[in-house]
């Protein structure tokens, strides 16, 4: 698995996919995001880490407008995120999200879960949607589960279905909000393997995770958030070998000590 240091620099294009400039957010009185500045280029893999409550999830949820922001600008693939519904819908079609709790639709089969958005949002004919769905189910290595309901699958299988579901919409960017935090240990690897293979194909992704081993091998850049701010941002090698700030150092000590 190569990260950007060994890949030729021209692999990443010039126009940034995600631009967050001076973003602030409040939940009532609580200042949850403080002056966030982040740029993600095409085919770049960014991992966001940090203690609980640091605002990591809130930040990536702002990227597809599951949360709104009160200050600053967010531009995704050239489209600015405002209250304009058309912009929001356009962005959501291009950005896929995978959640910690999977959030599969329990009343639909796996196949129906995957076909739902292509049929009703992209107006794809059903037969075409189904063949796309089967293709991605094979990609995540569980094509035989197509007719089952989410309640009948294991956690790892459900999360892989969730990844396939987002991929069926052909997104340009994939967001992962702690994708393995709700999984039993023996199932974490199968999900991380899928995410790694996605990265190898050049998908732009932002991953919030605690899995540092995975981050080290896969990420181009590391972002460390603490108390709503970006405390440190660096290339992966420098982040792990020579962390600049004290907070980063103590966090890494805690995480990497076992």
């Amino acid at each position: 698995m190569k990260n950007s240091e060994t890949r030729p620099p021209s692999a990443a294009s010039d126009q940034p996919m995600i631009q967050m400039a001076g973003v602030h957010k409040w939940f009532g009185e609580f200042h949850v995001l403080k002056d966030i500045n982040l740029t993600v280029r095409r085919a770049e893999r960014v991992v966001v880490c940090g203690p609980s409550g640091s605002g990591k999830s809130t930040m990536i949820r702002c990227i597809n407008r599951l949360e709104d922001h009160q200050g600053g600008r967010i531009v995704v693939d050239g489209v600015e995120l405002t209250d304009n519904l058309k912009n929001i819908e356009q962005i959501r079609r291009e950005v896929g999200m995978v959640f910690q709790q999977f959030n599969l639709f329990p009343h639909l089969t796996v196949l129906e879960n995957l076909c739902l958005a292509p049929i009703w949002v992209r107006k794809t004919p059903r037969s075409e949607a189904e063949s796309i769905a089967m293709k991605y189910l094979e990609r995540v290595r569980i094509p035989e589960q197509a007719g089952k309901y989410p309640g009948q699958l294991s956690g790892g299988q459900q999360q892989r279905v969730a990844i396939a579901r987002s991929l069926c919409m052909n997104p340009k960017i994939m967001l992962f909000d702690e994708p393995t935090s709700a999984l039993d240990p023996e199932m974490i690897k199968e999900v991380l393997d899928v995410i790694v293979s996605l990265a190898e194909e050049g998908m732009t992704m932002v991953v919030v995770t605690h899995e540092m081993g995975f981050a080290r091998t896969m990420a181009d850049r590391m972002v460390f958030m603490d108390s709503g701010e970006i405390a440190e941002e660096n290339t992966t090698r420098e982040f792990f070998d020579q962390p600049r700030s004290e907070r980063t150092r103590s966090f890494l000590n805690q995480i990497l000590s076992h």
């Binding site: 959501r92 896929g96 999200m97 959640f99 709790q101 959030n103 599969l104 739902l116 958005a117 992209r122």
Partner: peptide, 13 residues
Amino acid sequence: GPGQIDAAYSLGL
């Protein structure tokens, strides 16, 4: 659950 709505919105519905 709100997660269901999050997932639906994030798929573009």
